[in-house]
């Protein structure tokens, strides 16, 4: 059976993604900065689905390590899902560049470094898929969240180009633009119930879309319409708003 690599497997969405892929018979590589945090999930997946699960130490912002980590994978995964990401408060990252820098490194630069390696593999094999979790925050910069948003904006643009490049090789690239999700990252926030999805819903949505070979999805889908409006507000008006 084919292998899928989940990068940043300690997140809630990654946990549910791993479960769905395992349930559907995929063997899994799970990676995290400290993969010892994944041993419980590994046991869980084996009990639930009896697939093979291997753990991997991988630091997305440690660019120089990427080539050797990828080279060590045997067999090479046919699919890669990037679920890693960090978000700091806007205020905090405005006053402390190291926070902004960490978001840029983890959410953008590191992903580019990793995916370029997989892209070449997939391109040569003429098969495979790449899924990366971007965000609706990348669709337009807002005062309240633009440092995080800009990293996701860059990621979305990168994925769009990568998809364009890999299309002729038959390699799928799926950009996931998620809205609010109930996760560890948002546990302290009061989120609007109608706009907020559970990590299970998001994972299911991603799996289905990947299997259907889609390109870009908004999840929940209502975010497509919300962002359609937000993207089309003229800048002269937008700059005066507070959303």
């Amino acid at each position: 059976m084919s292998w899928v690599l989940v990068v940043g497997a300690t997140s809630d969405i990654a946990k549910d993604l791993a479960r769905i892929y395992a349930q559907n018979g995929y063997d899994l590589y799970l990676s995290a900065r400290d993969s010892s945090k994944l041993t419980t999930l590994q046991r869980d997946l084996i009990v639930r689905s009896k697939v093979e699960v291997k753990l991997l130490d991988l630091d997305v912002s440690e660019f120089s390590s990427h080539a050797s980590v990828v080279a060590s994978l045997d067999p090479m995964p046919s699919g890669v899902i990037v679920a890693s990401g960090v978000m700091f408060e806007q205020g905090e990252s405005q006053s402390d560049f190291s926070k902004a820098r960490e978001m840029i490194d983890v959410n953008y630069t590191g992903v580019v470094s990793l995916l370029e390696l997989f892209a070449s593999e997939a391109e040569a094999k003429k098969s495979g898929f790449i899924v990366a979790l971007s965000s609706v925050a990348g669709d337009r910069g807002r005062a309240s969240n633009y440092l995080y948003g800009s990293t996701k904006s860059a990621l979305s643009a990168y994925l769009s180009g990568l998809r364009n490049r890999l299309h002729k090789s038959g390699v799928q690239v799926l950009t996931v633009k998620s809205g609010f999700v109930h996760t560890k990252m948002t546990a302290h926030l009061d989120l609007p119930p109608l706009l907020t999805a559970s990590s299970q819903e998001i994972a299911k949505d991603i799996f289905t879309s990947q299997q259907k070979r889609k390109d870009v999805i908004y999840t929940k889908s209502i975010w497509f319409f919300i962002m359609l409006i937000i993207k089309h507000i003229p800048e002269a008006i937008f700059k005066k708003t507070n959303i």
Binding site: T40, R43, D44, V47, R48, K184
Partner: peptide, 8 residues
């Protein structure tokens, strides 16, 4: 969220 099977 702490929902893991450990052994069966």
């Amino acid at each position: 969220g702490y929902d893991y099977f450990l052994d069966f």
